[in-house]
Write a protein that binds this DNA or RNA. Structure first.
Lengths: 217, 217
DNA sequence: TAGATTGTTAATCGATTAACAATC
DNA sequence: TAGATTGTTAATCGATTAACAATC
């Protein structure tokens, strides 16, 4: 049925970035933009911008460029901002609470409907009008609610167990903050964050930079 | 002086992952591993593993494979875990506090020496023995301390100003959590996290998955 | 109409994978 | 020595960039 070939993940990962730039342009009151201008702003080639966008359709017009607002809406659609995803957070530690408090997810279609933890001191506490529940009530909760996404911010050692349970209960996607690669027997969508990996890469870049500075001297 | 050509960022970004797997093997008491076995565990090709490692040196031995502990140490060295990086956090909101409380960074050489915010209700509060300071004291603090890295968890609109100031004061690297691409006139190392981009990609994957399921039915 | 800029094909570049001689 | 597995070169694959005809 779907004849067009799958868009590569490299392209998909650039979409949120396009969206942000278009959102900025919109705020600046700029109504049209050419791939060349956008290229200069974003620091990528105009060619890549046109290739990327044409994976999804011809949103531009020869001799004119792209209409900022309509392109903004198109990319929003592609990213699925019209969908509504029911989301829960597992692990109400510092990171879990930080994510719960981040308000911007809501307006992209991710609505938080539950937070779980095993710590009795946290259970009952409210974050953004959502009461933290005990992990024991997860099963019943998921069965009674259509949970699309679970955000995993649990300690390292509990990650595989919790992830497997969620998959088993039919949760479709996991946003994983544990520094661990999930290997599930169930078919679930996973997006890893691995913050510590990112910091280590920064450390590497910094070490390289310091080395090259030392060489110049 | 440095004749070997620069290792690509794609390779660097895999190093923390190798390190994690080796750390697991070490914990399991496994002393040697071949690229083939590691390949099976990590889900990447043995060829890629050997190529990656050989960017930095010949750590293996024909007919034997790699010694887990020595490879673990080598990668730790490459990632610069022996270096000590003095780190500060700008923005003591939920995310800033979550990062401050994350203990594992310390053992990778990132030591937290200061936290700053503009909110008077937060100033003076202690996180992990570090007192939150007012942003006004940033300048003096950076001049008196050798700050290598600043972690940026400030609101969107303040990001460019703060980033620029840090760069100007000589901070070498920024770990940026703002959903904004920093463009600095100063020469500073930047590693972006862009959590919301990651969530949007998850949303896209999920939407695709739901579409293909609907088609099968 | 002339100028601008897209959509798209072709060329290039870089990253991944395969193959195999070297060697433990 | 025979078997295993690396380090490294060559082949393949995919992603990025360049070029240009189509067209607004």
């Amino acid at each position: 049925m779907d004849l067009k070939k799958k868009v590569s993940l490299a392209v998909i990962r650039r979409l949120p970035r396009y969206f942000r730039y278009l959102s900025d342009l919109l705020r600046l009151g700029i109504t049209r933009i050419s791939s060349k201008e956008l290229s200069a702003r974003m620091g990528i080639t105009a060619s890549q911008i046109r290739q990327d966008l044409n994976c999804f359709g011809g949103f531009g017009q020869q001799g004119y460029g792209y209409n900022v607002e309509s392109l903004y809406n198109e990319i929003g659609n592609i990213l699925g901002f019209n969908n509504k995803y029911q989301t829960i957070i597992i692990g109400a530690g510092h990171m879990g609470q930080a994510l719960a408090n981040y308000g911007n997810f809501e307006k992209r279609g991710f609505s938080l409907i539950g937070i779980f933890d095993v710590d009795q001191n946290l259970v009952g506490k409210k974050i953004k009008d959502i009461e933290i529940m005990h992990l024991d009530s997860l099963e019943v909760f998921v069965m009674n609610n259509n949970v699309h996404i679970a955000i995993l911010t649990v300690p390292y050692e509990h990650t595989p167990t919790v992830a497997d349970k969620l998959a088993q209960l039919g949760v479709r996607a996991l946003w994983n903050f544990s520094p661990m690669d999930l290997k599930l027997t169930y078919d679930v969508i996973i997006e890893n964050v691995h913050l510590s990996d990112s910091l280590m890469v920064l450390g590497y870049k910094l070490a390289e930079d310091m080395k090259s500075r030392a060489n110049i001297k």
